[in-house]
Amino acid sequence: MIDESAVRSVAAVYGIAWVATLAYVVILNAKLGRIERQLDELAGILEARSGDG
């Protein structure tokens, strides 16, 4: 017979590890979004410049 509180503790530990990994992915995704916005801005500057030329 497995102790229920032991199962809860094991689940908590593994759950926290997975949540931390997912949080890392979310942060990376946010960073990619920022890079994407900066690339758009850069493309805008270059397009404006080629339009002037």
Binding site: I2, D3, A6, S9, V10
Partner: peptide, 9 residues
């Protein structure tokens, strides 16, 4: 018992 599985992480 079962809680020792925490050790592996």
């Amino acid at each position: 018992g079962y809680s020792q599985r925490i050790f592996y992480f």
